[in-house]
Design a protein around this nucleic acid. Structure first.
Lengths: 254, 254
DNA sequence: TAGTGGTCTAGACCACCAA
DNA sequence: TGGTGGTCTAGACCACTAA
């Protein structure tokens, strides 16, 4: 006997526009994603089998699979052989992204501002040169910034960049975040290696950040790579632990 | 004129075993990955075009593409339309994984051991119930452990688990990590929401961890979900900042 | 046993990039 | 202008799950 349960996707008006330059699988995955986000596809509901889905929408099965796979990769759907494809049971948060403090603060409505403390070119120390994969003693751009939220210090950011990579003004650095400037100038950010730790503030660090000496600080070191694998930035950052924590969502690699 | 450069993959002895139960695309991607790791494919080298590659190995192009795509997802390869597929220029570290302190310490050769301080069932507080998605006041399993490396305290771990999920003994908890126990009992870990911060140690916390009161500690809160999206664990952990930092690799979502 | 996703094939046309 | 990856099709057989 055929298990004839209500097929939630039947009410979804799925379809694609073949005259659009947007890939068909992407159009489809966006429709599924919107339906999940708006609650039209509730957690646990089945998408229906791929072959029937493909027939109904007028696509081939591989294309439908590609759409579904992209949402599985995002953690929104789960596939079970012999069972079907379901919406995951609980709300998954934002997927992990290369976090930008500026964007994080702005998204939280905390009105980020930046004070540029230093913006210069100097010769690379061994440690900086090693992180950026350039020769020791060659030129590097150094930027030190104080990041504030609602006028209160949140973090002290020190970045080293390879020379000639990014032509930015101090005004631009005060108006937005470093990652946005990079993306805007066509640098394709790809990955980053991060180390997050903690230590007590020195007297000078405490003064800059508005904390007493010895106060706990979050530390982050990060090297960011573009999509050819070249280092485009090395950062050494200090965060007021009383004002900031890193939040992120991890997906397990199968 | 045909650009006839040395084709590094020609010396790679690529091939698949069709009698193996391992998927063909997976066999192929493993061969590429091994070649990259061993330096037989150096950064920047081209893989050769997909159609020719498929012909030489005796696979269809989609299968070869699937193999390549999995390495692109891992950050080992870069595709450029009109150019080809290249090995990324710098060695990328381990991809981001749901980190297990036990595994991290073991991989670093730091001989992790565990002392179970508490292993009991109690009724869920509002905060714990909310994180685990269960009713307030219902039973939860609580585990408190001290994790040591080379006999020195590194972290204090407190976990809450929904009842009936995992039947573990105190001996098992002393012998291995919680994630390994979960995987061993068939729980498919899927994702986690983490928050990492810092604060000063209280006198009691300092005593347990071998730090003076007021010493900086790394804090982590984590809720872990299985592949149906149900919460399987909520943890509140304290790490000695002098002995431990989180290291991880992030990939930017395209 | 019936139904599902997992894998694989052999083509096709298009969009982008470098020379 | 030629070569590359990006997308798409219409099938096929297999492995796993639930009943």
């Amino acid at each position: 006997m055929a298990r004839r349960e209500a097929e939630p996707t039947e009410a979804l008006r799925l379809g694609v526009d073949r005259s659009s330059p947007v890939p068909l699988y992407h159009q489809l995955s966006q429709q599924f994603e919107a339906a999940i986000e708006q609650g039209r596809l509730v957690p646990g509901s089945l998408l229906g089998n791929e072959i029937e889905l493909a027939r109904r929408i007028g696509l081939s099965r591989p294309t439908v699979r590609q759409a579904i796979q992209s949402l599985v990769d995002k953690g929104l759907l789960v596939r079970r052989r012999g069972v079907g494809t379901q919406v995951v049971h609980s709300q998954v948060g934002r997927p992990l992204e290369l976090s930008s403090l500026y964007d994080d603060l702005e998204a939280a409505g905390r009105r980020p501002t930046t004070r540029v403390l230093r913006h210069a070119t100097e010769s690379a120390s061994a440690s900086v040169a090693g992180r950026l994969g350039i020769a020791e003693g060659s030129d590097v751009v150094v930027v030190e910034r104080l990041r504030l939220a609602h006028g209160e210090p949140v973090a002290h950011l020190r970045n080293h960049l390879p020379p000639g990579l990014l032509d930015m003004t101090t005004e631009e650095l005060e108006a937005t975040g470093l990652y946005r400037l990079m993306r805007r100038s066509g640098i394709g950010l790809h990955s980053a290696r991060q180390s997050v730790g903690a230590r007590a503030a020195t007297a000078g660090e405490g003064e800059r950040l508005g904390e007493p000496g010895g106060a706990p600080l979050l530390t982050m070191e990060r090297t960011t790579f573009d999509d050819t694998g070249r280092a485009v930035e090395f950062g050494t950052h200090l965060y007021r632990a009383s004002r900031y924590a890193f939040e992120f969502q991890l997906l397990v690699r199968p």
